[in-house]
């Protein structure tokens, strides 16, 4: 696993969790955070990686995100290299919340928006 210090190999993305809501987020091209991995900035360019690192440290300090770290991205698939990170990207493969929504579509589902 790579860290905020960027020790990874190949293409990198920067991930964290939102401090307030807690959901997994990835840094985007315009240096904001998205709950959708599809928006993640993936790069091997050292200048960009430096900029990402600086942004991560800044947003951590500004109490927007928590636990910022770089992840290795598989160059071929464009997906996270580590199995665990693919889970953070996809969300749970089983969530009882789906049952709850099926019964009552108005149920509070604030978090569902992130993985749609």
């Amino acid at each position: 696993m790579s860290t905020l210090k960027h020790k990874g190999k190949g293409p990198q993305a920067l991930t964290a969790n939102e401090l307030r809501e807690g959901y997994s987020v990835w840094l985007t091209q315009d240096m904001t955070w998205s709950r959708d991995f599809k928006d993640a900035l993936i790069t091997e360019d050292q200048d960009q990686i430096d900029a990402m690192q600086a942004q991560g440290a800044k947003d951590d300090k500004a109490n927007l995100v928590v636990g910022v770290y770089f992840i290795d991205i598989d160059a071929k698939s464009g997906q996270p290299a580590r199995y665990r990170e693919t889970f953070r990207m996809n969300g749970p493969s089983w969530d009882t919340a789906a049952d709850v929504i099926a019964k009552d579509p108005t149920a509070k589902q604030s978090a569902t928006a992130k993985k749609d």
């Binding site: 307030r20 807690g22 009552d104 509070k108 589902q109 978090a111």
Partner: peptide
């Protein structure tokens, strides 16, 4: 579960109840 989470809870192997999606605030 309804007001702050996703409408369910999970009973753990230590007899507790946990909620998977609360927001810190």
């Amino acid at each position: 579960a309804d007001k702050y989470d996703r409408g369910y809870g999970h009973i753990t192997t230590r007899q507790n109840m946990q909620f998977n999606w609360p927001e810190l605030t």
